[in-house]
């Protein structure tokens, strides 16, 4: 990253492959570069060097519009700050990704998903009328509506109390299992990380594998090689 005239290396060269259907936790302390890695994997940000493939698509060669399209087609998100749009109702927030990807039945699917996360009677409520846990449940429903191939979750329970957090975690893993989605989860919560099939640890931009499951296939997977954000 270029800050004025100094170059700041946020990530050291690394290699990471995520296979379809896999659940991966990226753990590490604050400022270790977890979220930067997630941004690059999801095509939100670009590495200064290196390659990122998502579903065989070279994200590092794509412009903003193309990456947007990839996200709309293949990616779902859950954030620590929920990031709902305040002017839209719960249902409309959930429907948004489906609409952006031009999927049919957005409304029916949205209603079904909100029912699955236990908010069947809150469809027309605005985010400001919902509690933190409820907002995160809306965000989860939103993440699954476009049937994404891969779901990125950034500290999904970070802003919630432990009981609500537990409930949200259950929901994410249940839906993930049901939909067969690939899950990449960033957290510093060891218990949450432990529920993933595989864990990698970030420390000062260096990635170390905790458990090894990866197979070097390029089909239906996200792969990142030697990204150096600098």
């Amino acid at each position: 990253m270029q800050v004025e005239d100094k170059t700041l290396a946020l990530l050291q060269p690394l290699n990471l492959t995520v296979t379809a259907g896999e659940s991966l936790a990226i753990v590490g302390s604050s400022g270790s570069g977890k979220t930067t890695l997630l941004s690059i994997l999801a095509g939100l940000d670009l590495p200064s060097s290196g390659q990122v493939y998502l579903k065989n698509k070279p994200l590092h060669q794509f412009n903003e519009e193309q990456r947007s399209q990839v996200r709309a087609q293949h990616v779902g998100f859950i954030f620590q700050q929920f990031l709902l749009i305040n002017s839209l109702t719960a249902l409309e927030n959930v429907m948004l990704p489906a609409e952006l990807a031009n999927l049919p039945d957005a409304q029916a699917r949205g209603e079904a998903l909100l029912a699955q996360v236990g908010l069947a009677d809150r469809l027309d409520h605005y985010p400001s009328q919902l509690s933190g846990g409820e907002q995160q449940r809306v965000a989860i429903a939103r993440a699954f509506i476009s049937k994404p191939d891969i779901l990125f979750a950034d500290e999904p329970t970070g802003n919630l109390d432990s009981k609500t957090g537990q409930h949200i975690t259950d929901l994410i893993f249940d839906l993930n299992a049901k939909e067969g989605t690939t899950l990449v989860l960033v957290t510093h919560d060891a218990k949450l990380a432990a529920r993933c099939q595989r864990q990698v640890e970030m420390d000062s931009g260096v990635l170390t594998e905790k458990l090894e499951f990866s197979t070097p296939e390029h089909d239906n997977k996200t792969e990142m090689s030697a990204p150096q954000v600098g």
Binding site: R71, A72, I85, L96, P97, A101
Partner: peptide, 19 residues
């Protein structure tokens, strides 16, 4: 600030610049 946040969310969810 509010507008900035909304545009960021929409961008993340894959909305095109035109939209």
């Amino acid at each position: 600030e509010e507008r900035e946040r909304e545009l960021a969310i929409l961008r993340t969810l894959g909305a095109s610049g035109k939209l």
